[in-house]
Design a protein around this nucleic acid. Structure first.
Lengths: 233, 233
DNA sequence: CGTCGGCGTAAAGACCGCGTCAAGGCATCA
DNA sequence: TGATGCCTTGACGCGGTCTTTACGCCGACG
């Protein structure tokens, strides 16, 4: 930002104290600023409060499932997530990666390898930066809060169904950009629905009816015929 | 119009034919568009020509060292690179990752794990796409934004149909270079339309009418008679 | 000088995609 | 069991887009 290069902030989540300790020492010795958490809820809280640049997440936490933690983070953040796990089963890896993790390292792991993967993740995140990420997006007729998943129109809260929210969220996360129908369908309904473009017509109509001032002449939820949809603030 | 150009392009680099074949079959079966190369120099050339969305790179190529290939790519591209290697030594992993690779998978690997890591890499690249400035191409009369898919002429937005945009996008991505009619037709309409060169005349005329100052004397969307078309900034 | 192939322009009809309304399943919950 | 909310599916009109045809122009070539 402005005042000089701050240290990279790493959030380490693990329920085993000795691993937590080993990671903290190693990371601190290399100049990282280290946050720690011992369970999933604490991890999510620490992520909100501390805004880490990268998360090292052990699976098998006592309170939450690993994919839940990933989903909780991905709901509002694109911070790189490196998963640690003792489980070598490829099913676990696929689940974690598809839930939104960036990398998956199996225990026992070499510290230098983890550090290299961490450097790679941070490098990627900063070089591709452009993080115009704001958690709450406003237009002249409604506002969308990506963290609390709430939508207000003229100040009063509007209830959206899960699918309506899913569509809106993808569009708002890509604000300004054209989102292809296929991508929208795959992100909201899953890979098998890539051609069900009729769903989009129905749900875009509903969203416009709930959010736009003139649903027949939308100013924010725009159609690009034959290509996809676009959200404009 | 056929299904063609929306698929993710993967460049697979490996000197072992059977691995190359296995990857190509698996990736193609999942809808990826696959390019292949068997050595480092071919890989770099293929990356320039084909503009893949992700690269799967085997180390231990006959001609170039793995890190050289990575460096050759990183010199001009931020495309995600997933390294394959038979070597489990952590020193190799650290070298490759620090050279600019995004992920490192040791052989033998599970195909579903590789595919998951590939999905993760592509997802990251598309969601964090902060290339912003680089993706805007300007001329003295109009600008093309390849990320948001918007075109402006003298500041005001111009609406393009999907086919118009398809043609323009191919030309702009190959700016300065001659694009053969056949290539243009195949990229936009699909392989079956390679000889329908009349379409190009119609759509180039429309694009010029929408974008050029003097559509009869184009300065940016140029015809190379008998060969193809070229976009010049 | 005439012909021919490639290119640019214009226009018209067929076709497809979009928006809209509404009805039918299918869960959940009282 | 009935009520409610949500997702899915169908039908239909309309407007925009693609395709196709027709024609004039120009340079190459015989």
């Amino acid at each position: 930002m402005s005042a000089g290069p701050a240290a990279t902030k790493v959030l380490v989540v693990d329920d085993e104290p000795q691993i937590l300790r080993a990671l903290r020492i190693n990371l601190a010795a290399r100049g990282y600023h280290v946050l720690t958490a011992q369970d999933g809820t604490a991890a999510l809280r620490a992520a909100v409060d501390g805004r880490p640049d990268v998360v090292v997440l052990d699976l098998g936490l006592p309170d939450l499932d690993g994919t839940e933690v990933i989903a909780g983070l991905r709901g509002w953040s694109t911070v790189p997530i490196i998963v640690l796990s003792a489980r070598t089963d490829s099913v676990d890896k696929v689940q974690a990666l598809d839930a939104g993790a960036d990398d998956y390292v199996t225990k026992p792991f070499g510290m230098d390898e983890l550090l290299a993967r961490l450097r790679a993740a941070v490098r990627r995140a900063t070089t591709t930066a452009g993080d115009g990420e704001e958690a709450v997006v406003e237009t002249d007729s409604f506002t969308v809060d990506l963290v609390t998943k709430k939508v207000r129109k003229d100040g009063v809260e509007v209830h959206l169904t899960p699918t309506e929210w899913g569509v809106l969220e993808v569009l708002v996360r890509n604000r300004g950009r054209l989102v292809a129908q296929k991508q929208l369908l795959q992100d909201v309904w899953g890979p098998a629905y890539a051609t069900e473009s009729h769903y989009l017509r129905v749900y875009l109509a509903q969203l416009r009816r709930k959010l736009e001032r003139e649903p027949a002449h939308p100013k924010h939820l725009l159609t690009e015929p034959g290509m996809g949809y676009r959200f404009e603030a």
